[in-house]
Amino acid sequence: MNSEDFLRASLERGEACLAAADLEALVAGQGSPQAAEHLPRCAYCRGEVEVLRSFLEGVPTAEESSSVRRIEQNLRTSAAWKGDRRSTGPWAFLGRPRVGMAAAGLAAALAVGVFLNQPRPSAPEADTVDVVRSMDIVGIAPTGDLAEPPSAVRWSAVPGAVRYRVSLEEVDGTSIWRQTASSAELVLPAEARELMTDRKTLRWAVSAEDGESKTLATSTSLPFRFVRGSK
């Protein structure tokens, strides 16, 4: 056994290792007695809990924000997951837009990848996949780490919307506070700000409705947290 195999063997997942539900409970500070007993005896699970935490509670830094927003926008406009793949097998990627290439400005590749292989009813409306369609709604603020609990949330207005529904969520998506607004901003009352305790990551999202309560657009949820003493 060489040294790398040895290291791997002493670190890898074992039979007694924790299931996903145990890991998420530990991240939430609610692990079962069995899980709590296993954890100090297993480097793999200790690592796994922390990596899951970084996924669930990660907040983009100021430097990361614009890139992350752009990736989100690309996900929203391409919605490749809905089954845009035309074929399977090694060449399947030719049949769906690789928006990463578009982001890098490869206009020619985009023309082949998006418009030839994926005929759309109204192709000219989107010269690049970074264009936000009119029915999208984009959260503007708050996001990232904040020195104080935010006083308001703001987003991009949606044409035809008469009402916006704003929700604050735990990192697992559980809604903890809701309010409606008639314009693209909502001043947060004390009861909402009190939910923003020091270093606790929350997310917020907004959806737009027309006069018949039909949802026109829903934003992605944006993470933020109040960190006492941050810049």
Binding site: G58, E64, S67, R203
Partner: peptide
């Protein structure tokens, strides 16, 4: 949609580039 941001951040940190 609720999870786009979370996955975007995770992938960006791992990959190190937007593409």
């Amino acid at each position: 949609q609720r999870h786009y941001g979370r996955v975007a951040l995770w992938c960006f940190r791992l990959a190190g580039d937007r593409e």
